[in-house]
Design a protein around this nucleic acid. Structure first.
Lengths: 200, 200, 200, 200
DNA sequence: TATGAATGAGTCTTCATTCAT
DNA sequence: AATGAATGAAGACTCATTCAT
C-alpha cells in the first residue's frame, strides 16, 4: 500500500471514529462513512469491506496508543500516589466527556461480536487493566504509600464504576462532582496517610 | 379496548422484552416482534406504531413494578443491615444475569431519545434511586448500624459500578466473584461493626 | 333500512363529501371516512363497501338536487335576461369557491371509471347542460331578447371555461374579476340590447 | 453525473411522463416507474427520491421547451392573423388529445403542492400565458388586423375554456367540433374583417 | 347494526455490495 | 485507486377487507 492509500485509510478511520462516537456502532453505515469521508461507494470498499472491519482496526490502533500511554505513565521510582493522581485525573476527564466516548459503540460491537469471535478482546482488555492496576497498587504497598487493601475489590469497583459513569454521561447530564466523589472515595481506601481527605 | 386486545398487548410486550434483552433496542424491528408474537404486520401496528412506543410502555410498566417492589423492601423497623443485605442480594443476581438484562437496550434507547425529549427519564430514575438509598443509609446511621460515611460518594460508587457490571456481563463472561467483591467492599464501608469482614 | 340507518348513511356521505372536496377522490380512504364519521371499520362497511360506492351515491344525490334547482330557475314567462342573470350569478359564485369544489374528485373519479363503466355519466351530464342552455337561449331569441348567435359555440365556451376556472380556483388564487369578465363577455355575445355593456 | 446516468434520467422521465399522462399524478408509484423504465428499486432511487421530484423536473423541462416554442411562434412582422391561426391550431390539437394530456396530473400535483410551496408555479405559468397573449393581441390591434376588444376577457375565455376542454377530453369523448367552435368564436371576436365567419 | 382485532398485500425507502469504466 | 450506476434484500408503514363478539 502506498502513501496515498495510507492517507485515505487514516481519513476513513478518523471520520468513522466520529460517527461511531456520535451514533454507536450499529447506527453507522458504510454509506455514512462514504459521505463523511468524501469517498464514493466503490472507493471505500476498495479499502474496507465492512463497518466491522473499520471498527476493529480502530480498536487495534487505540489499544496500541493506550498501551504506549500507560507505559509512559507508570514511571518507576516516582511516588505511587503521584502516578495514581495522574491516572485518576485522566479517568475523571474521560468520565465527563460523554460526547467523544465510544462506549456505546463498544457495547454494541461486543454485544454482537463476542459470541462469534473466538477470542474476547474486551475481556483481554479488562484483564490487562486489572493487571496494570495490580502492579501499581502493589508498588504503592511496597513503598508503604498505600494501605493493604482488598486489591481485587478496589480495582473492580474502580473499573466498573468508571465504565458505568462513562456510559451514563452519554445518556444524561452527569454532575461534575460525581466522578470526583467516586474517584476520591477510591483514593481514600487506597492511600494510607491521606488524612486530610483530599479529593482528587 | 377489550379483553382480547389487552391480552395481545401483554403478549407483544413480553415478546418484545425478550428481544430487547437479547439484541438491544436498535436491532429489534417491528418485523421481529411480529414474528415473535405471532401477529401479522397490520395486527401489530393496530396496537403499537413503533418499537419506541413498545419500549416506552415497557419502561413504564417496569418503573411501576420496581416502585412497588422497593416499597415492600423498605420495611420499617427491620434492621438496616438486613434490608441492605436483601437489596444487595438482588443487585448481585442482576449483575450476573447478562442474558435477561435490558441494559444495552436502555443505553441505545436513551442515547437516541434523550435530546428530543423534554424530560430525561433516565435521570429521573437515577435521582429516584439516589434518594431511596439516602433514606436507607440515614436510617442505618440513625440506628447506629451504619458508619457516618460520605453518603453521596458511596451511593454513586454503588450505582455506577452496578451499571458497569451489568453492561459488561452482556459482553464478556463476568466472574461470579466480581459482584460479590464489589458489593462486599461497599458494605464494608457502610456497616459499622462488621468487623469480621464478611462479604455479602 | 330504518331511520337510524338512514341517518348514519347521511352522516357518512356528508363527511365523505368534505373529504372528497378537500383531497380529491383517490386520496380519500375508507379509513379516512371511518375517522371523519366516527364509525368503526366494520360499521362503515355495513353501509358501503367502497369509496367508489359512496361517491356514486353522492353524485346521484347531487344530480337530483341540481335538476330540481334548474327546474325552479327556468320559470317560464320571466324575461330570459333575468333568468340568465340568475344562473350566471350562481356560476360566478361557484367559480370562485375552490375549497368546496368537488371538481378534482370528479376528474379523478371519471378518469378511472369512464372506461370500465358502460355509461358515461359525465357525458350525460354535459349533454343535459347543453340542452338546458339551448332551451334557454332559444327562449331568449324567441322573445327577441337574445341575438341570433352560434348557440353551440357560446354554450361550449361558457361550460368549458366555467369548468376550467373551477379547477384552477382549487390550484391557485383566482382573481375575483376573472369570472366576471368571462361571464360578462358571454352575456355580451348573447344579449341583444345590452348596449351599456354591463357586466354581470 | 456521467453520460450513462444522463441517459437513464432521460429514460426515467420519458417513462414517467407516459404514466402521469395515463394515470394522473397520485396514481403513479415509484414502483410503476421502476417497472416501466426497467430499473431496480435502488437504481431509481439513486436518481430521484420521489415521484414529486420526477414530476417537477418534467415540469421544468416542459417549461423550457414551451418557452422556446413560443419564441419561435411569435415571428415578428408576420401578419397577426397568421400567427394567431398557428397558435390556435396547436391549441385545437391539444384539446382533442386527451390521452397524452398531463392535465389530470397537473391538477393533482398542484392541488397538493400549492400550499407548501412559497411560489405558485401554476400561477406563474398562467401569468406568462396571459402576457404572451396580450402582446400578440396588441400587435394585432396595432396592425389594425384585430378589433379593439376587451383583451383580458377574451384571454381568460380562451385560456380557461382550453383548460376545461383538455380536462374533459380525458374523461369523456369530446366531439371534434367542440374545440373548433370554441376557438372559432374566440377568433371571431378578435379578428376585424373576418366577415366570412371562417372557423379556424 | 356496531366494534375493533386480525390479516395480508402493496408501496416506500434505505443499504450493502458489485461492477464496468 | 476511484467513480457512481445498478441490483436486490430488508424493513417500515398503510390500507382494504373480513370476522368473531
Amino acid at each position: 500500500m502506498n502513501k496515498r492509500g495510507q492517507e485515505t485509510r487514516t481519513r476513513i478511520k478518523t471520520c468513522a471514529c466520529s460517527l461511531f462516537a456520535e451514533k454507536g456502532f450499529n447506527q453507522v453505515t458504510m454509506k455514512d462513512i462514504c459521505e463523511a469521508s468524501g469517498l464514493s461507494r466503490g472507493g471505500l470498499y476498495n479499502h474496507y469491506e465492512s463497518t466491522r472491519q473499520i471498527f476493529q482496526e480502530l480498536l487495534k490502533d487505540m489499544q496500541n496508543n493506550q498501551a504506549r500511554a500507560f507505559d509512559q505513565k507508570i514511571r518507576q521510582n516516582q511516588p505511587a500516589t503521584s502516578i495514581l493522581d495522574d491516572i485518576l485525573e485522566v479517568y475523571r476527564e474521560e468520565m465527563l466527556d460523554g460526547r467523544s466516548s465510544l462506549s456505546l459503540a463498544f457495547y454494541e460491537f461486543f454485544s454482537i461480536h463476542q459470541a462469534c469471535g473466538k477470542e474476547n478482546s474486551l475481556q483481554e482488555q479488562y484483564l490487562l487493566s486489572v493487571n496494570t492496576w495490580k502492579n501499581l497498587i502493589q508498588y504503592g504497598i511496597d513503598r508503604q504509600e498505600f494501605r493493604e487493601v482488598d486489591t481485587d475489590a478496589i480495582i473492580d469497583l474502580l473499573l466498573f464504576s468508571y465504565q458505568g459513569v462513562r456510559m451514563y454521561s452519554k445518556l444524561m447530564p452527569v454532575d461534575k462532582e460525581i466522578p470526583s466523589r467516586i474517584l476520591g472515595e477510591i483514593k481514600k481506601q487506597l492511600v494510607r496517610s491521606d488524612s486530610d481527605g483530599n479529593h482528587i
